[in-house]
């Protein structure tokens, strides 16, 4: 298992180092890749949220079945 100090130094070294840039590449590439990351995260978040809602609905549904209460009672919770 890596020591925390070593891990910290590695992270610092990675972020402190900026290599050379080359031509023949759209200058907006970095921004698009960043936004790809953001879009991916946002998409992932929406996916999780959707399943979380489904899960909640499922649990709520089951507990409703157990208590024998209808939808109206749920809304008042």
């Amino acid at each position: 298992m890596p020591r925390p100090g070593l891990l910290f130094c590695t992270v610092v070294a990675i972020f402190s180092y900026t290599p050379e840039a080359f031509a023949y590449l759209d200058p907006g590439t970095g921004s698009i890749l960043l936004q790809g990351l953001i879009a991916g995260l946002a998409g992932g978040l929406m996916f999780i949220r959707m399943y979380w809602k489904k899960l909640k609905a499922m649990i709520a549904g089951r507990s409703r079945d157990e208590t024998g209460l209808g939808g109206d009672a749920q809304d008042k919770e």
Binding site: T18, P19, F22, L25, G30, S31, L33, L34, Q35, G36
Partner: peptide, 20 residues
């Protein structure tokens, strides 16, 4: 991150960019 992605893309732009 944009700076690093920009520089990393000089080595391998195609696939990642396509995916993004």
């Amino acid at each position: 991150l944009p700076a690093r992605f920009q520089l990393a893309a000089t080595r391998d732009a195609g696939a990642k960019l396509q995916k993004a």
